[in-house]
């Protein structure tokens, strides 16, 4: 089981083989956790997202159609789950009255923080679509085609979004430096 190829594991898992499935989960745990961490930024959230992703996987693997590769599919689930969690957190945060206060302090902190943290913060603040594209291309080091497969859109769209994201980042950084 250990030395089987992932695609074979997927086929076996789809047939309902529990050991194959467990193996698949074990193998991809770090991958999903890493994606989730990069997206969420905290360990706790990342772990929650990871659990949720695998729950979704177990619900759907039996119906996985192999229209895309397994990894692409997993990425897609992971990103969508992370997005959902982010949305939920956002909603929660909005409810809290201290939101504005928090925002102010975070801007103040920004000045003192390192360039890396600032870049992160900026990606975080990009519009959803740009954010997920930037995330896949910059952070996961994917080429535009791969990202397009995951995001379920045309390669050109990815290229365009990357361009926009970069522009926005640069603009923000320059503005930050000039401040």
């Amino acid at each position: 089981m250990e030395n089987l190829k992932e695609s074979e594991l997927v086929i076996r898992a789809k047939e309902g083989d529990p050991t194959a499935f467990e193996n698949l989960v074990e193998r991809n745990y770090m991958l999903v956790y890493t994606i989730s961490y990069k997206w969420c930024g905290t360990k706790e959230d990342a772990e929650d997202v990871t659990q949720e992703v695998f729950m979704k996987l177990s619900k759907n693997i039996l119906y996985f159609k192999e229209e895309s590769t397994f990894q692409t599919w997993l990425y897609r689930i992971a990103i969508n789950t992370a997005k959902d969690l982010a949305k939920m957190n956002e909603r929660k945060r909005k409810k809290e009255s201290a939101y504005i206060e928090e925002r102010k302090t975070s801007i103040q902190q920004q000045k003192e923080s390192s360039l890396a943290e600032r870049v992160h913060q900026m990606i975080e603040n990009l519009p959803q679509k740009l954010k997920e594209t930037a995330f896949l291309v910059f952070s996961e080091g994917m080429n535009h085609k791969e990202a397009a497969a995951i995001l379920n859109c045309a390669e050109k769209t990815v290229s365009w979004r990357v361009f926009q994201a970069k522009r926005a980042l640069k603009r923000n950084l320059e503005r930050g430096e000039s401040l």
Binding site: V25, Q51, F54, M55, S58, K59, I61
Partner: peptide, 12 residues
């Protein structure tokens, strides 16, 4: 996580 996931897989 793995345990919960396996249970779910089973249910499915």
């Amino acid at each position: 996580t793995i345990k919960a996931v396996m249970t779910e897989f089973h249910q499915q």
